[in-house]
Simulated scan of single mutants.
Amino acid sequence: MPATSRPLRSVLYIPGSNARALEKARQLPVDAIIFDLEDAVAPEEKASARATLAAALGAGGYGARLKIVRVNALSTEWGGEDAAAAVKMGADAILQPKVDGPSDIDALGALTGNVPLWAMMETPLGMLNAAAIAAHPRCEGMVMGTNDLAKDMGARFRADRLPLMTGLGLCVLAAKAHGVAIVDGVYNAFKDEVGLAAECAQGRDMGFDGKTLIHPGQVAVANAAFSPTQAELELAARQIAAFDAALAQGKAVAVVDGKIVENLHVATARETLAKREAIAALHAE
């Protein structure tokens, strides 16, 4: 299933060095997992983390969850070996940190064959080059790295994320323009469900496909926020039915709840129903 059509409501980071977390992740109701060899792994554990993760992925058991391996940057001493190892692990995608432009994807792509590549969007230069990154033929997904972006910008953390809005918006526009997946950044206060729900709602309203998470306790909130609500599903069904009835009468528009329904609304309605089916299929295991 292409990344743009599959559910990506909850995307959980798991340290590649943590065997217990890797085992637990097999049972979590997440849509995707980022198996991290970068920030979540100490320098002295980089090599052993590679081996631990390879064993876990080789054992399987992650079902239909999208399996993404985040490697270290090629500029580090670990990046090249990470890339070579990730290819052999059978990952669904490889996530590259701190992508500044298309040339970074070229460099990783030269080492990874046909494995789909995802880009961490977490630098000011990456924001300015978002469209070119999303347009790269090897790029199938983008992940916001809001902590690093805020640090590089010298921005203050605010609940409304106002300092980050330009970057977030540029990346969403780039992803939608070029048909790649786009996942929002993490929410650091992992015990604050109210704050997480608010940030998920903001990201969903902006057009993000889902949310990256740092703790299993955040999964339920993200899944709920990025799933169609019952009201949305019922409205979608009524819009489709009304529009089909209008077409049968030779009309190009319908009216539902006092609002015009045209082709574009029906397309959105069909996408809403398709998302429900995709979510059900993903977790039918």
Rank of each mutant, 00 (worst) to 15 (best):
V266Q: 00
A175H: 10
D31C: 06
A237E: 15
N72L: 02
G154K: 14
E140I: 01
G109R: 03
V11F: 12
R204K: 14
A91S: 05
E271C: 10
A119V: 05
L170Q: 14
L95A: 03
A3G: 03
R138F: 04
M165V: 05
R65N: 06
T123C: 00
E277I: 04
A107V: 01
V256D: 02
T4L: 13
N188W: 07
G250N: 08
W78I: 01
L247C: 12
D148Y: 00
G113L: 05
L168I: 07
L168R: 13
R9M: 11
A177I: 04
Q249D: 14
H178M: 02
P116N: 03
M142Y: 01
P7G: 01
D244P: 00
G141P: 06
D209M: 09
K151E: 15
A64M: 03
L128Q: 12
I182C: 14
L164H: 08
E199G: 06
L149H: 01
Q239L: 05
H136E: 09
A231M: 08
M165K: 06
L233C: 09
A107M: 05
T212F: 10
L12T: 00
I260S: 07
H283M: 02
R161K: 05
A248T: 00
K176C: 04
H136N: 04
R156T: 14
I14V: 15
A269E: 02
E277K: 05
M127F: 01
G217M: 05
S103T: 10
I33V: 14
G109D: 10
D39C: 11
I279L: 09
E234L: 08
K251N: 15
G145M: 03
D148E: 14
E285A: 11
N223M: 12
D82E: 11
A237R: 14
M120W: 06
A269H: 09
A56L: 12
L273H: 05
A135S: 13
I105A: 10
A222N: 00
T112A: 10
D31S: 09
W78L: 04
K191W: 07
G207F: 04
G210H: 07
W78D: 15
V255E: 12
C171K: 05
A55W: 06
L264W: 03
G258P: 11
E38Q: 12
V256C: 07
D148C: 02
K211C: 05
A254W: 08
P7L: 01
E77K: 11
I133D: 00
A245F: 03
G113D: 04
A134L: 07
V11H: 13
